Computed example of a mutant assay.
Amino acid sequence: MKLTDLPTPSLVLDLDRAERNCAAMNRRAHELGVALRPHLKTAKSVEVARLATRGQPGGITVSTLAEIDHFGRQGFRDITYAVGIAAHKLDALAALQREHGLLLTLLVDHRDTLADLAQRAAALDTRFALLIEIDCGGGRGGVAPDGEELLALARQMAASSHLRLAGVLTHAGQSYAVQGREAIATVAEAERSAAVQAATRLRAAGFELSVVSVGSTPTAVFAQGLAGVTEMRPGVYTLFDLDQVAIGACTIDDIAASVLACVIGHNPRSRRVLIDAGALALSKDLSANSFGTGLPGFPDLGYGLVCAIDGGAPLPGLRVAEVHQEHGFIAGGDDLFEQLPIGRRVRILPHHICMTAAPYAHFDVVRAGNHEIVARWPKVGGWNPKNEPTA
């Protein structure tokens, strides 16, 4: 089967680029002296997980119960669920932990939540390992590394025979709001420092912990050192996207996933080409535009850049300028209609691949510059386990 045989829109994975990206981050983790626990919320694929964990202990990070179930069924046993936990999910988590024989680690940052967890875990007669989430400046979740709440949470865990403090975890979400090596390296140091400070205080207070976890793709790329850290959890790097290009974490040639779309119309009045990939196929994320692009010929990235079907360099000046639910409009270029006749297939490079890839059930996998489909890799979707059969 070839790319021209696929239905559109389809999600295409360039295997050469994905392999290169995963190998590079693997080397980076070894250089920094930490374990790599890749975040699979981006790819949601067992095959990508296997690429990303080569040469590593094999632990992964996820964001949904569906991902825990999916990866657990495929032999991944050491899983960190890196979303603040709610007690009503514990029944399902306990069942998954038992069914798949998992070492499942959960995240907490509030005493009320922790009290509910202790009560429910006791009722289920099960044990959970916990990480205390630390706020390293992103302001999304977590406790201050120098605050009293940190020690209070640790004491509260110690009072329960069903909960175990495994360590601390932080995520520098603010790294996506800055650009360039120096600025991101500064954020990476703030991320490292917050996690290590929290771990140091806990150990000084007599608590044992084995995990000091940090993670984002930009900080993993540009961190100057991770002394005191045990693991990092980047995820976008497996596929990369325009947002990572814009902040300087990768180049266009590193983007491994794109959306295959078909030209379905010409609008002479608006000088736009209509494609069958819109807001649901591409997402409405415009994150890279907030930086200015730094890409010659592309002052505006629109909702994605347009490439030929072979997935090479973006076509000069062409971008997805507007999206509706199932329609996209390509603009740019004096010979737009000649370049993109009706029926022509194109590949769109996305702003934020986590958002773009999520709705698709699988990747159609190709080798660089080749139209042949060499594999179809299933993906997991949604939030809750679906009791899928083991492959």
Rank of each mutant, 00 (worst) to 15 (best):
residue 99 E to Q: 14
residue 295 L to I: 00
residue 75 G to R: 00
residue 49 A to P: 12
residue 222 F to Q: 07
residue 52 A to R: 01
residue 270 S to K: 15
residue 177 A to L: 14
residue 358 A to R: 11
residue 260 L to T: 09
residue 91 D to C: 13
residue 259 V to M: 03
residue 258 S to W: 03
residue 344 R to Q: 15
residue 329 F to A: 09
residue 190 A to N: 09
residue 58 G to D: 05
residue 264 I to L: 06
residue 334 D to G: 10
residue 287 S to K: 13
residue 107 L to F: 05
residue 122 A to Y: 14
residue 254 D to N: 12
residue 315 L to V: 03
residue 154 A to W: 08
residue 84 G to Q: 03
residue 68 I to Q: 01
residue 248 G to A: 05
residue 270 S to M: 02
residue 58 G to V: 11
residue 139 G to H: 12
residue 123 A to V: 14
residue 120 R to M: 14
residue 150 L to S: 05
residue 384 N to C: 14
residue 389 P to K: 02
residue 238 T to D: 13
residue 39 H to G: 10
residue 148 E to W: 11
residue 354 C to F: 14
residue 224 Q to P: 07
residue 9 P to C: 02
residue 270 S to H: 14
residue 49 A to S: 09
residue 328 G to K: 04
residue 291 F to E: 06
residue 58 G to M: 09
residue 19 E to Y: 09
residue 304 G to Y: 07
residue 126 T to P: 01
residue 110 H to M: 05
residue 285 D to T: 04
residue 160 S to W: 02
residue 161 S to Y: 04
residue 181 R to D: 04
residue 266 H to M: 10
residue 300 D to C: 01
residue 267 N to L: 03
residue 141 G to M: 04
residue 291 F to C: 04
residue 380 V to R: 10
residue 216 S to F: 03
residue 237 Y to L: 10
residue 19 E to R: 13
residue 206 G to S: 08
residue 270 S to I: 06
residue 63 S to C: 13
